[in-house]
Write a protein that binds this DNA or RNA. Structure first.
Lengths: 101, 101
DNA sequence: TCTTCATATCGATATCTATCAATACACTGT
DNA sequence: ACAGTGTATTGATAGATATCGATATGAAGA
């Protein structure tokens, strides 16, 4: 039987995806980088903000949720935050949903 | 680009999984049937209730959420509701999370 | 140091959700 | 018809969440 922590952890990750804006953000992060940070893959917060019609604090909140769920990673580069998908965690979640859940 | 309805639909499915009790229910539904309904796979509501330490109305609520998300199917057999996983929808969601999201 | 820009945090609020007790509904056997 | 059983709905409530404006933090450049 699955442990309670595993179940809780799965639910927490799904909760992070349980919002259209956050699903959209994960879509956007698939695109090649187009922000000031010259790194392939990922985006910085201002670019995400430019595409979602949400306020800057709201975007910041969503990124925090995605990060704490482990689905997105972030690094500070200069004054920008560079966000990118954690493909490993995403793939593991996809596996869990099919077999383990 | 993904359409808004697709994004909304994905988020709706994730929202259905964004609760430990409902993740647990999907686990339970993997087990072979052990309820009065003599059909392989799936469970009836009373069996789920017996394993989750939640009230009957709460279980009923969770099953409704899972059904409306399309992740679980239900049939009435006599006075029992027979619930089973919609493996097709679950697999599609697993695909979406990895590639499309 | 001062200003500017990018991002995070705070405080407030409206909406949503999980939960239960009570009740209604539906099916079965007597 | 009636009683019993399984499930759904209703109504209420406590807690969570998405959102924003205002403000704070932090980094870069003049």
């Amino acid at each position: 039987m699955k442990s309670a922590v595993q179940t809780e952890d799965l639910a927490a990750k799904f909760k992070a995806l349980a919002d259209p804006s956050r699903v959209r953000i994960l879509e956007l992060l698939k695109k090649p980088s187009c922000c000031a940070v010259d790194v392939p893959g990922g985006l910085c917060a201002c670019d995400i903000e430019g595409q979602l019609d949400l306020s800057q604090p709201t975007i910041s909140h969503h990124m925090k949720v995605l990060r704490e769920a482990g689905l997105v990673e972030a690094s500070k580069i200069g004054q920008w935050m560079w966000y990118r998908r954690n493909e490993k965690a995403i793939t593991e979640l996809a596996e869990a949903i099919r077999s383990a859940v």
